[in-house]
Write a protein that binds this DNA or RNA. Structure first.
Lengths: 193, 193
DNA sequence: GCCATTAGTTAAACTAGATTAAGGTTCTGA
DNA sequence: TCAGAACCTTAATCTAGTTTAACTAATGGC
């Protein structure tokens, strides 16, 4: 199936797989489509799956006591997304995950993931690297949120994810940057003189 | 050597090791002492080592363009610390790491770590779990920094790390919470009525 | 194809937290 | 042992970003 080729390409950035392994790999994943606005995970549920996005766009976010949404991650094609805490420890998710566009993805459960590590041990390496990179990017974001003002954070966002900047509504970008849409509007207009 | 027992205990929280494996393990680490204020890593260098703290206290921090320090992590006994970006990708470190107290630690290089994974594959699992937990904790911190005000973040810090709250100077805690020492002083006094 | 919701703009009033500054205390190392 | 450094407190002033509100533009569900 065509869906797998993107995942396999992604894995092969980090290690090589023979045909048998590629074939075995497929057995561990399920395919799923989401409509725009559809939930993949709701706060309080357990995140049984980790998702690899094939096309479309997802977001994970936290809803605070005042009902405001704070976006932790966007995931477009070739990205992984889950509530890592809930997925690895089977605790109730604090995050919501939903689709910002119609989205297709490949899912794996934690149990299947652990079995996969036994069957094809080098995939443990793949997931270790993915996780290392995720840690690095959260670390970077925390660092930027502590040391930069909103206009600089927005400038970095544009530079790092030019595609997302065009693709996403301003509300979502503001919720990712940790500012209000009103303030992002102001920043954008100041940038355009 | 006594130093290893803490590391082995830490590993055995996640998987079991036989005596041979424990013995092999030791070959991959080196022991190091740091005096208070001594650098373990300086911005611009490459982080050749990841460190497991046996006793004492370390911190990793970023110095912004105005010379202010922003602390990403404290590491006391039983914690790992490094600049993950520099350690895994051999890039120039953006972070500094130094000792807040006289500290003893065990070091491993990235090369040794990768060799270790080949020799004792289940240690890849150990480091995957450590990394997953690190990712979760950065994610949580980012989320708190976006959704809570400073007094609540401080309250959570006290609850989560009561020992650190007593052990560290206020300047360091403020640099971790992303506020000024002046403001932390205010928060503390309001809390004491 | 229309109406209701969602998304974006602009401006005025407000606030969490920064900055500056001055004075007091506690550490530390030669 | 003592001088400089690091640390803490309090208060006044300032600012980045929020809140509210009123208006316009774009979407999308029926």
């Amino acid at each position: 199936m065509e869906e797998f080729s993107l995942l396999i390409k992604n894995i092969e950035k980090h290690l090589s797989l023979n045909e048998t392994e590629k074939e075995e790999l497929r057995q561990f994943f399920t395919f799923k489509k989401l409509r725009k606005r559809q939930y993949f995970l709701q706060e309080g549920d357990i995140s049984h799956y980790s998702a690899f996005v094939i096309n479309g766009c997802m977001r994970s976010y936290y809803v605070d006591v005042n009902g405001f949404e704070h976006i932790l991650q966007f995931a477009i094609e070739d990205w992984w997304i889950t509530d890592m805490m809930s997925f690895t420890k089977k605790t109730e998710a604090k995050l919501n995950i939903d689709a910002l566009e119609d989205t297709e993805m490949l899912l794996i459960t934690r149990e299947q993931q652990l079995k996969l590590f036994e069957k094809i041990p080098k995939l443990e390496k793949y997931f270790r690297i993915i996780t290392e990179n995720g840690l690095i990017s959260y670390q970077n974001r925390l660092l930027e949120s502590m040391s930069l003002h909103a206009p600089e954070r927005y400038a970095n966002f544009i530079k790092r994810y030019p595609a997302l900047n065009k693709r996403l509504p301003q509300t979502q970008i503001a919720a990712y940057l940790g500012i209000t849409p009103v303030f992002l509007s102001k920043i954008r207009n100041i940038n355009n003189h």
